[in-house]
């Protein structure tokens, strides 16, 4: 049985989406760009961590993350208001202030979600208001297949989810505040963890933090 469809309006454009789908996917499917780093379509309990996909929805006072809000019939969504842009621009600047911007030497150059966001929303990659607070943590290059550079990591948590799905479950968030990192259990090098080498984490990484060697 085909899933019921609902019609909603995004930026004045009528969009048809599967009932129960999140606004983010409805918009992206319809060719309307909403920036996002941490959203995973199949994941229960959306991460809602990157704060890039905040949108205005008529009837709500607060901004809502498009990745966590299911579409309903007749819903009116705006992704391009001044208010939305102010908050997501701040979020983007914050992320970039903590990201080792080294695009020309980066494997992900050209397919990076940060570059895509900057180019589609006409943001500068290097934040204008904020000083750089990039960390200089050691890169884990212990694994024969891939490397992890925490200084490029945006902590979207996609690798944690992918690793869990693969059955390995070796990756988790560790520490708090600015010290938060993605880590193996006990912080052992990747090669010493129970990693089976599926590299699903590399596939889902939206930036150049987890890349094939």
């Amino acid at each position: 049985m085909a899933q019921a469809k609902v019609k909603l309006t995004i930026n004045g454009q009528e969009v048809e989406a599967k009932s129960g789908d999140m606004i983010l996917w409805a918009a992206l499917d319809a060719g309307i760009f909403i920036p996002n780093l941490c959203a995973i379509r199949d994941k229960d309990h959306p991460q809602t961590g990157c704060r890039l996909c905040l949108v205005e929805i008529e009837g709500y006072d607060k901004l809502i993350t498009a990745c966590s809000e299911p579409v309903i019939k007749g819903m009116v969504v705006k992704t391009n208001t001044e208010r939305v842009d102010r908050i997501r621009h701040t979020a983007f600047e914050l992320l970039m202030s903590n990201h080792n911007i080294d695009c020309k030497n980066c494997v992900q150059n050209g397919s990076c979600a940060l570059q895509e966001t900057a180019s589609k929303l006409k943001y500068k990659l290097k934040p204008e208001r904020l000083p750089s607070i990039v960390r200089s943590l050691p890169i884990d290059d212990s694994h024969p297949l891939f490397t992890y550079d925490p200084n490029k990591c945006v902590l979207c948590g996609k690798c944690v989810w992918a690793c869990e799905q693969s059955g390995a479950g070796e990756l988790q968030f560790a520490f708090r505040g600015i010290d938060t990192v993605i880590s193996t259990l006990g912080g052992v090098p990747l090669v010493q963890s129970g990693c089976k080498g599926c590299a699903d984490c590399v596939t889902v990484c939206p930036v150049g933090a987890l890349v094939l060697r």
């Binding site: 991460q47 704060r51 914050l94 992320l95 520490f175």
Partner: peptide
């Protein structure tokens, strides 16, 4: 609060760090 931020969301993890700095 910065030290106790869980690190999940950009605003709290990085925004409060910039403010603290």
């Amino acid at each position: 609060t910065q030290k106790e931020s869980c690190g999940k969301c950009t605003m709290c993890r990085l925004g409060s760090k910039h403010m603290l700095n």
